[in-house]
Design a protein around this nucleic acid. Sequence first.
DNA 1: CATTCGTGGCG
DNA 2: TCGCCAAGAAT
Length: 295
Amino acid sequence: MAESNPLREPLLDWYGTHARDLPWRRADATPWGVLVSEIMLQQTPVARVLPVWAQWLARWPAPRDLAAEPPGEAVRAWGRLGYPRRALNLHACARAITADHGGEVPADHDTLRALPGIGEYTAAAVASFAFGGRHAVLDTNVRRVLARAVRGEEYPPKATTAAERALATRLLPTVDASTWGVAVMELGALVCTARAPRCADCPIAALCRWRLAGRPPHDGPARKGQAYAGTDRQCRGRLLAVLRGSHDPVPKAALDAVWSDPVQRERALDGLVHDGLAEALTDGTYRLPLAVVSE
DNA sequence: CATTCGTGGCG
DNA sequence: TCGCCAAGAAT
């Protein structure tokens, strides 16, 4: 049976001429470089990842290089990328890869999926982009493109559905599936964006059900915006920034100074320690972790 | 399935 | 200005 995916050719043609030159996509990028990029790109824009990725790969060119460091160094080098537990996940990945996989990033999807911080998307992305595996790569970009082009709706469902997975799998080419995946992602990132889609520049506009229907707006309830100011997350961010800025243990007073509410501050600090992002020393000072927290 | 988890830029 | 959103995962 011949493949029935009319989106494929125009999309691949477009990708061939419009793809960004990102370092983790180049021919000399290693699987480790791809893995690091995918973790960093979780909920974080490309522009902010670029400089940190370059620093990480220069300092830790292979998993065993990072594995040799204490986890706190990964947290420090993470800088202000956000969601710093991803730095711990990457460090834990490096140690697991070194200890259990001979220092080489595994190519198998399920093996990748079992590593810390690697969920369905990231496992598929690394298996596909680093090793050329045939996997449906369902990120927020792909979900939005398929929702519009195929389902005719402005936005995909809040949580990924079985129908979305089935659709993405059905569209997957038998040959060079990884290029198809990255091309759909790129279209979602550059043209079929969440807020102001540039349909005039879209290579599949003529086939897009949403555009053909007159771009009907999303009808359901609005998305639940994420508050930040005054939250525990902001408090944790402030506290961790203090720890990142010092190579020596910092006195408790230095942490108290960055958040006024003592109840919330203690809760946030305990949370950081519990998550393995900070260590409390016996003299009452705190620092980035030298050891991995046990459960 | 709903929450939690950072940060910053842009429309 | 400020709400929305950015290559998600874990619980």
